[in-house]
Design a protein around this nucleic acid. Structure first.
Lengths: 206, 206
DNA sequence: GATGCATTTTGACACTGTCAAGATGTATTG
DNA sequence: CAATACATCTTGACAGTGTCAAAATGCATC
């Protein structure tokens, strides 16, 4: 039996301690600082105090590492979204408000991570990891389920649940991206834009 | 006087003939073939039959070249959008249909070019060229103007024109991107999703 | 024909991701 | 405890990238 330091990782590293987690942590930090396009495995290794190729024993690829970070993002987002939706103290309409604002806010607060999670680099071609898909698809599905739910209880109008869900998610994604990428520049009006989207989507009580 | 081959360019190059245009053409082709991330100035130069650094006398940067391509895309898109909106044979409602479908279709038909035009690489930081901004901003503005117009004539509901425009454009952008980036995978349903967006945005006649 | 300038090339530098081969430490087995 | 197996890390190397400096080339004009 090894002296168990295995609190945060099933199988801690031998030489470094826990290189995998260290790399993930540094990577997230470096991305937040300098953007995805400035993340290099070599700089990452340097920060962790190991040689350039050490990361390759924990991630098969640069893409593999990116997928791992994105997966973590999906887990986090899924958790908060689920918690917000399960809040029994709020009405369905209120929770729709919360969901819409929370989505855009998450994206704007973590622009680089959001870019990574929904960017082409990960999803195009066959780049997505098994692990990533296993985490992301339920997250997608949950979004669709929630919207379907709002629709069936009359908060949202329309008769085709899936299509409406795709449109609303599209709107959230588009608004978030236009702000993140610097095309919508008036970031002080993020909530106003989101509020306008809410107004346009909720069912009009005649 | 040189044997004038200067039909398509104001100032043809001396040695190559018209390297600038050749580079732009090859770049667009190469992007369409292999995606933006696989575009390199060196390969571009090789294709044009010049040395690696020749492009630097026509574009200050790789970014400069990308901006030039994007600018061309904006010009093209602006032209067709304007033509469709100025079509006097169609009603305002019909033209709203056309606009929505045309937007998404343009994006899906030219995914790499769309990615370039609205991607972060060009707009983040100070990357956008003077020329690009000079072409893109009127294109943005025209979209807002059109939507404002549809709103004032009752096709779209709502009382804040700018916000509604931002939401609708956001929805178009988001839907397009989710399809392009491979998150919405059922590409056969693009028109259905767009149609659903239209239904959700047009004013309900009670 | 000589000069000036636009254009292109060659050489070089600092990066990048990634592979192959060797070195080092840990765990397990005899 | 000694020996073997294996995970981990390092060194060296290769091909590729964007970009700069300096030299070479060709065209136009004086």
């Amino acid at each position: 039996m090894r002296p168990s330091q295995s609190q945060k990782s099933i199988r801690p590293s031998y030489h470094h301690g826990d290189l995998r987690q260290t790399l993930l942590r540094s990577a997230k930090q470096l991305i937040a600082e300098a953007g995805i396009e400035n993340l290099s495995l070599r700089r990452l290794a340097e920060r962790a105090g190991v040689s350039r190729t050490a990361p390759y024993h924990h991630f098969s690829d640069k893409n593999d590492l990116l997928c791992a970070i994105a997966a973590e993002g999906f887990r986090r987002r899924h958790q908060t979204a689920a918690a917000e939706f399960d809040n029994k103290a709020k009405s369905m309409l209120e929770k729709f408000h919360v969901y819409m604002n929370s989505y855009v806010q998450f994206a704007v607060d973590n622009p680089e991570e959001y870019e990574l999670m929904f960017g082409r680099s990960i999803w195009k071609q066959q780049n997505s990891t098994e692990e990533l898909r296993a985490v992301a698809y339920p997250c997608f599905q949950h979004q669709v389920d929630m919207i379907r739910c709002w629709q069936s209880c009359g908060v949202i109008s329309g008769d085709n649940a899936l299509r409406s869900a795709q449109v609303i998610w599209g709107a959230l994604h588009g608004i978030a991206k236009l702000f993140i990428d610097g095309i919508y520049t008036d970031t002080a009006k993020i909530e106003e834009v989101t509020q306008c989207a809410i107004d346009m989507f909720i069912a009009k009580t005649i």
